[in-house]
Amino acid sequence: MQQLKKTYTLQEAIKKLEHYCAYQERCHKEVRQKLVTMHMIPEAIDTVIVHLLQHNFLNEERFAKTFVRGKFRIKKWGRRRLTLELKKKDISKANINEAFREINDAEYIEVFNDLAEKKANSMTEPNKLKKKKKLVDFLLYRGWESHLVYDKANELFK
Rank of each mutant, 00 (worst) to 15 (best):
residue 2 Q to Y: 08
residue 5 K to N: 10
residue 7 T to F: 03
residue 7 T to K: 08
residue 9 T to Q: 09
residue 12 E to V: 01
residue 13 A to F: 04
residue 18 E to M: 10
residue 19 H to Y: 13
residue 21 C to E: 04
residue 21 C to T: 11
residue 21 C to M: 13
residue 24 Q to Y: 12
residue 30 E to W: 00
residue 30 E to T: 07
residue 30 E to G: 00
residue 30 E to K: 00
residue 31 V to R: 04
residue 32 R to K: 12
residue 33 Q to S: 10
residue 35 L to V: 13
residue 36 V to K: 12
residue 37 T to I: 09
residue 37 T to W: 07
residue 39 H to K: 11
residue 40 M to H: 06
residue 40 M to D: 04
residue 40 M to W: 08
residue 43 E to Q: 15
residue 44 A to N: 12
residue 45 I to D: 06
residue 45 I to H: 14
residue 48 V to A: 01
residue 49 I to D: 06
residue 50 V to Y: 06
residue 51 H to W: 14
residue 52 L to T: 04
residue 53 L to C: 09
residue 54 Q to K: 15
residue 55 H to F: 08
residue 56 N to C: 05
residue 61 E to M: 04
residue 63 F to N: 08
residue 63 F to V: 13
residue 64 A to H: 02
residue 65 K to S: 05
residue 65 K to R: 14
residue 67 F to L: 03
residue 67 F to Y: 14
residue 67 F to A: 05
residue 68 V to D: 00
residue 71 K to A: 07
residue 76 K to F: 01
residue 78 G to P: 01
residue 80 R to K: 04
residue 82 L to Y: 01
residue 83 T to A: 02
residue 89 K to G: 00
residue 90 D to H: 11
residue 95 N to F: 09
residue 96 I to L: 14
residue 97 N to L: 13
residue 98 E to S: 13
residue 102 E to L: 09
residue 105 D to N: 08
residue 107 E to G: 04
residue 110 E to W: 10
residue 111 V to D: 05
residue 111 V to W: 02
residue 114 D to K: 14
residue 115 L to P: 03
residue 119 K to C: 09
residue 122 S to I: 08
residue 124 T to N: 11
residue 124 T to C: 05
residue 125 E to K: 14
residue 125 E to S: 13
residue 127 N to Y: 04
residue 129 L to M: 10
residue 129 L to Y: 06
residue 130 K to E: 14
residue 131 K to V: 03
residue 132 K to I: 11
residue 133 K to M: 14
residue 135 L to P: 07
residue 136 V to Y: 13
residue 137 D to C: 04
residue 138 F to K: 13
residue 138 F to Y: 14
residue 141 Y to L: 12
residue 141 Y to E: 15
residue 141 Y to A: 10
residue 142 R to Y: 11
residue 146 S to D: 01
residue 148 L to G: 05
residue 151 D to N: 10
residue 152 K to Y: 03
residue 152 K to T: 05
residue 153 A to N: 07
residue 154 N to M: 15
residue 156 L to T: 14
residue 157 F to V: 11
